[in-house]
Nucleic acid binder design. Structure first.
Lengths: 214, 214
DNA sequence: CCAGTACCGTACCGTACGGTACGCAGCGGC
DNA sequence: GCCGCTGCGTACCGTACGGTACGGTACTGG
């Protein structure tokens, strides 16, 4: 109940350096060991006592939640410089989103964390799922939609419902990749393939929603 | 080791009526209780003994595998009458696939089974994931691609790689729906919305790949 | 009528794992 | 130096659950 814990701009507690090390250990274990993560293993890996884990994170769910948040806090990078768009810039911005998104969902960490969250959503108390959703699908949506809006304002895109347009973009980019990875399909994408996929998705999106500037 | 078990055309054993009842009990429990499925619960629900469960299915994994296969065997309906396509028929066939697919992935059973399979894929022995994949994504792919081929043969579609074209179709239909449901997002689609979504996806797909018959 | 088989119900076992208790070392404050 | 605090290491507890054993019942074939 100390009043000295740091908090970020949204009021979330930000873990101390030692706690971050513990959370990184959790991520490492998750990636290496598949998901049968035990508190003992975490304590051993992080060289801390189980009692400390329980003191800091409450229980196993708390540890998982903190881990997911911690990972999420790393992904939020990316600049969204605003301003009036031209066609080339719009394309480039969409391409950037697409590449970033594919990089994320194709990463081992994302796959494992999504698996955890999905399993969690299956057994009541589905806040983990909500967190992952908020920091994945919804976060990228929140960042892409303003770009689409700017594109429409500049006369480069035509659509009625921004949500629908974004979800189409999402579908064109992700296709079956995420579900296949979650289900254990090998399917490793290298950077070149990701760029190709992203470019194809952007081309298709612009073919559907783009229009020449009037 | 009785030699009298029935087998289907692919050599899979097909469960007896009593066994089917057990598997249905598993499905019901899965849907009702989230996924913390215990052998005790199954035995109680199906009014059979645990010993029988182990005799029939080997172990818990075997029971899960049989359940997934059993559910998969139900979905394989759907006529694929071949022949030369005209534009309206092609559209209708694609629409039918899209509606069917959305119906499946939006169903409680599919969500729960996918969750099980994904959790399973996270902890070694990922055959459950492979089975779900084979009967979901891959099965529908196998059925859609011939239709696309027929459309191309009829000069109604233009594409180079059938796999890519199909995956685009898949992305346009599914978008973020499956991952959101798996993560516990409420998002309940009624039949009308599914039809709208499916129609939009087909329109978009034809906008990308369709061409007037020369 | 008996033997064999199939299966239900239930008691039981072993263990893995979440969670707690306790001893001990390092360290800052008085 | 002594005291309290934080946190490591480890031993420990309780329980849920996978898997097994066993007794009892119904049915079938001989």
């Amino acid at each position: 109940m100390s009043a000295t814990v740091a908090r970020d701009e949204t009021g979330q507690e930000v873990p101390s350096a030692r706690q971050q090390a513990v959370l990184d250990a959790v991520l490492a274990l998750l990636v290496e060991e598949g998901d049968q993560l035990t508190m003992d293993a975490v304590a051993r890996r992080a060289s801390c006592s189980k009692e400390t884990l329980y003191k800091w994170f409450g229980d196993r769910d708390g540890l998982l939640t903190a881990t997911v948040r911690w990972q999420a806090s790393r992904v939020h990078a990316g600049r969204d410089a605003a301003g009036v768009l031209d066609a080339a810039t719009l394309r480039e911005r969409l391409l950037d989103f697409a590449v970033t998104w594919l990089d994320v969902i194709a990463g081992r960490t994302s796959v494992v964390l999504n698996r955890i969250a999905i399993a969690h959503a299956g057994s009541r108390k589905g806040n983990l799922g909500a967190i992952v959703l908020a920091n994945g699908r919804l976060a990228i949506g929140g960042r892409v939609k303003p770009v689409l809006e700017a594109g429409r304002a500049a006369g480069l895109l035509a659509y009625e419902d921004g949500e629908t347009a974004f979800r189409t973009f999402f579908g064109l980019v992700g296709r079956d990749i995420q579900i296949r990875l979650l289900l254990g399909d090998a399917l490793d994408l290298d950077a070149a393939e990701i760029r190709r996929d992203a470019a194809r998705a952007v081309d298709q999106f612009l073919a559907l929603y783009g229009q020449a500037r009037p």
